[in-house]
């Protein structure tokens, strides 16, 4: 219980510093620009699928920026003075991650309120918004967890490259065209295909989550998608915390 309280306090501490540093203006400005470009009132109300697909991509972009900035904020020698207190390394890392997620979620919420006020989405009830927002925000949480795992304070350069290589293999189906694959020897192509299948499986919740937020169809086994997203997020976070607790803590510029 105490560790949860400490983590919450650290989130507040981090958010206050982030806000006072002025970095949050970047996210705020980006939100205003995106709202003006994609969500301002047109002739007809936008469909819900348009809102969730555009907002989903924008939220991922925000997650990328906020999580990277927050991990950079945590990767400074100032952290030593905090970590000598009762804040554990797990609380420290989770605090940074959750602070970034708080910013992303808040700005998504503000965007949604802006839409409701200035440009209401056609046929979107509060229930529909909640059903679409859940997988959308879980995708942001999942992406944030991956970025946390890949942060320099968590994984060493070698391990980061290894994880990125796995992600690249998982996406290689979209990156390598038919001609390129045809030029690769059969054995390698088959091996690559197997590896792609293996490594792309964990990405399924992310893709299906995106689809779920767009169509909000929870029928059949689709209701399992948020659970899969959450499980994958927690797995990545657990991995990140495990790595962070085990490694030497050498903050940048120290």
């Amino acid at each position: 219980m105490k560790s949860i309280t400490r983590t919450l306090r650290f989130i507040v501490f981090t958010l206050v510093e982030y806000a006072r540093s002025g970095r949050i203006l970047v996210e705020c400005l980006a939100t205003v620009v995106v709202f003006y470009l994609f969500f301002r009132r047109w002739t007809t109300p936008p469909p819900a699928s348009y809102f969730f697909s555009t907002a989903g991509l924008f939220t991922l972009g925000l997650t990328f920026y906020s999580t990277s900035a927050m991990m950079g904020l945590g990767d400074r020698p100032q952290g030593y003075v905090l970590l000598v207190r009762r804040i554990s390394r797990a609380s420290y890392l989770l605090g940074l991650y959750l602070a970034a997620l708080t910013i992303t979620s808040a700005l998504y919420g503000i965007t949604s309120i802006g839409m409701a006020i200035y440009n209401p989405v056609a046929d979107l009830t509060l229930r529909g918004w909640l059903l679409g927002s859940l997988p959308l925000l879980l995708n942001a949480a999942l992406f944030g967890a991956l970025l946390t795992l890949l942060a320099p304070i968590v994984l060493t350069a070698g391990w980061r490259l290894a994880v990125l290589a796995l992600v690249a293999i998982a996406f290689s189906g979209n990156l390598l065209g038919g001609q390129t694959v045809a030029a690769i020897p059969q054995v390698i192509a088959t091996g690559l295909s197997i590896l792609r299948t293996i490594f792309s499986t964990p990405l399924l919740p992310a893709f299906t989550g995106f689809q779920l937020s767009v169509d909000r169809d929870y029928s059949g086994i689709h209701f399992l998608t948020p659970i899969a997203q959450l499980t994958l997020t927690l797995s990545l976070l657990s991995l990140a915390i495990y790595a962070f607790r085990r490694r030497d803590l050498i903050f940048s510029s120290s």
């Binding site: 510093e17 003075v81 804040i87 120290s254």
Partner: peptide, 17 residues
């Protein structure tokens, strides 16, 4: 943790507080 006080070498604190 909490039983040790630490004064680091470099004057790096969270300056926005």
């Amino acid at each position: 943790r909490g039983r040790v006080g630490y004064l680091p070498e470099r004057l790096r604190y969270h300056l926005r507080y």
